[in-house]
């Protein structure tokens, strides 16, 4: 599909991410071109659609996407993985948190094209053999959710925190979950849920 891309008006975040600090005018092609930028060879994709392959929750997903598409939009719009939410859309609120090779990232601020070849884990991938993850169970029991829109991001951020620190102090919680915001005010439940999940995981 051909598209015109207007350069009028202000630079959008997608445009900014797309050019990654270098401004190029490139023809509509599929597949990379190689350009020399500051003496180094740089593969240039797009702006048309590019075939991409992802490993999400252990499964392989394929799509043809423009290089400017974020990981969040790819998950939500191409693969029907809508657990990660788009809220602030600029790396502030944490509602889109997913794991990349086990580390939490804001999926709104990662380009899909750059998430290829890495293990992507979303909230949909936390259940094992049809059973809720202990963190998910603890969220329900401690009522660590109301409207639930921030909940997937918090659940994934909690998992990342407990994976690297099975016994977090209250200060660790503040640091580990400081990148996630809730509007309904479920933090009391979240504090209790993560304490319970940590206990359950220590107990085996």
């Amino acid at each position: 599909m051909e598209k015109q891309h207007s350069r009028a008006g202000s630079l959008s975040r997608r445009d900014f991410l797309k050019v990654s600090g270098i401004t190029l005018t490139v023809p509509l092609v599929i597949g990379p071109r190689v350009l020399k930028v500051a003496g180094a060879e740089v593969k240039v994709f797009g702006p048309g659609r590019v075939p991409m392959t992802f490993t999400i929750n252990g499964k392989t997903y394929r799509a043809e996407l423009e290089p400017r598409v974020t990981l969040l939009d790819a998950l939500r719009n191409e693969f029907e993985l809508t657990g990660a939410k788009r809220v602030c859309d600029r790396g502030t609120c944490g509602a889109c948190t997913v794991l990349l090779d086990g580390k939490p990232v804001y999926a709104c601020s990662v380009l899909a094209i750059e998430a290829q070849g890495r293990a992507i884990t979303t909230v949909e991938g936390l259940m094992q053999n049809g059973k809720l993850h202990p963190i998910q169970q603890a969220f329900i029991e401690n009522d660590a959710l109301q409207c639930g829109f921030c909940t997937p991001g918090f659940v994934v951020a909690c998992k990342a925190l407990l994976d690297r620190n099975p016994n977090p102090t209250p200060e660790d919680l503040v640091a580990g979950l400081g990148g996630n915001l809730c509007r309904c005010g479920t933090y009391v439940g979240i504090r209790a849920a993560i304490a319970q999940a940590a206990r359950m995981q220590r107990g085996g």
Binding site: R76, N77, E80, L81, T82, G83, A84, K85, R86, T122, V123, E124, L126, M127, L132, Q136, F139, I140, D143, L145, G148, F149, T151, P152, V155
Partner: peptide, 19 residues
């Protein structure tokens, strides 16, 4: 809450999630 499992697993569908 009865819809807790849907919400903590990301299965809960909001208007924003309607495709």
């Amino acid at each position: 809450r009865v819809d807790g499992p849907e919400k903590v697993t990301g299965r809960a569908k909001y208007t924003y999630d309607v495709n």
